[in-house]
């Protein structure tokens, strides 16, 4: 079952005279004062899935998530959340979704506890239930000790954790997270990632935008890569990584200087680069190349000091896909 169905959405902004769009350089099309921030984007997110939206700055990630959360109205297309059109029944849809916008803030004049109670009231959570939820969320996100502190005194990481608590106060079926770990300290980032996984296991569908490859790789079941307002790839992280086989490599450091020419002749090897004390070997097939290099070292009595294999990362895949997109 689809939790989210995005059908051919576009968002165009009309710019007034003399005004500049912050991300003008990266949008796909700018003519006659119209910025095409998102163009004909379609995808679906399955119930219980963690779906990542990956792209460089200004690619259209935030504009897309804003259309999906009822902040910006699409110029064309439609968005359904659990079968309901967000722009036809916005209040119903918003009741079952939680949202952490990218640049959002909590009410710094209120304490952490007051912020949560306010959110519970807005979502119509009954008094006893909202106090129970506020307490359990603050404990989970390691903020309970600071619950009576005005949130202006919270660190950025604490504020971000509180924002996530606010989004979870209504026990949403879908969570929208725009760059949830951007610029956070290691502890906050770890807590947030851990709890995203935990809530997903409990059945919450999660849609997140990020430019952090580790977050996307660690959390997402599927990833859409967006650039210049268009989706250019949509697949699992593993399959995306397979697109960049050329990033497979083996680093070998030997006790003695070796002859690299022989390694270059192996069929399993694409390229050999000399590094300090050894070689960086770009390979077509890691398994075969490893056997070849080990045989080579045995036959020449070379002694390994160190050997490491490198698999392509999501970052490699992302850069390659963006690069190909630019070439096209």
């Amino acid at each position: 079952m689809n939790a989210i169905l995005v059908n051919n959405i576009s968002k165009h902004f009309n710019l007034s005279k003399g005004k500049k769009h912050k991300n003008l350089n990266s949008v796909s099309n700018f003519s006659s004062g119209v910025v095409r921030a998102v163009e004909n984007v379609s995808f679906s997110v399955k119930k219980g899935e963690i779906f990542g939206f990956l792209g460089p700055n200004g690619a259209g990630k935030t504009t897309t998530i804003r259309m999906m959360t009822g902040v910006l109205k699409p110029t064309t297309g439609s968005i359904e959340i659990f079968g309901e059109d967000i722009w036809k029944k916005p209040i119903l849809v918003k009741q079952i979704t939680g949202n952490v916008p990218e640049e959002a803030n909590v009410y710094i004049e209120l304490t952490g506890w007051q912020n949560l109670i306010l959110m519970g009231e807005i979502y119509g959570v009954p008094k006893e239930e909202r106090e129970f939820r506020a307490e359990s969320l603050l404990k989970k996100f390691e903020l309970y000790e600071k619950r009576d502190l005005k949130s202006r005194k919270y660190s950025k990481g604490m504020k971000q954790r509180l924002l996530l608590c606010l989004a979870l106060m209504s026990n949403p079926k879908i969570l929208f997270l725009d760059e949830p770990t951007s610029g956070l300290d290691v502890q906050s980032s770890r807590i947030i990632k851990q709890l995203i996984k935990e809530y997903n296991k409990l059945g919450t569908t999660i849609f997140l935008t990020t430019h952090d490859m580790d977050v996307a790789n660690e959390l997402c079941h599927r990833i859409a890569i967006i650039n210049k307002g268009k989706i250019i790839r949509l697949d699992t992280p593993e399959k995306l990584k397979l697109l960049t086989q050329e990033y497979q490599a083996i680093d070998c450091v030997f006790t003695d200087k070796i002859d690299t020419e022989e390694i270059e002749r192996f069929k399993s090897v694409t390229e050999v680069q000399e590094i300090k004390g050894g070689v960086h070997v770009i390979v077509k097939d890691v398994h075969k190349a490893l056997i070849d290099i080990i045989e080579f070292s045995k036959s020449h009595n070379y002694e390994f000091k160190q050997i490491n294999t490198h698999q392509p990362t999501l970052e490699d895949a992302f850069l390659k896909i963006i690069e190909r997109g630019a070439e096209n």
């Binding site: 804003r66 959360t69 009822g70 902040v71 916005p90 209040i91 119903l92 918003k94 009741q95 979704t97 949202n99 916008p101 640049e103 959002a104 803030n105 909590v106 009410y107 710094i108 959110m119 807005i122 979502y123 119509g124 924002l163 606010l166 929208f176």
Partner: peptide, 14 residues
């Protein structure tokens, strides 16, 4: 200015 508006707009209120 304080970036609380977007959070409010995504709440179930018209």
């Amino acid at each position: 200015m304080r970036k609380t508006m977007e959070r409010l707009i995504t709440c179930p209120i018209s």
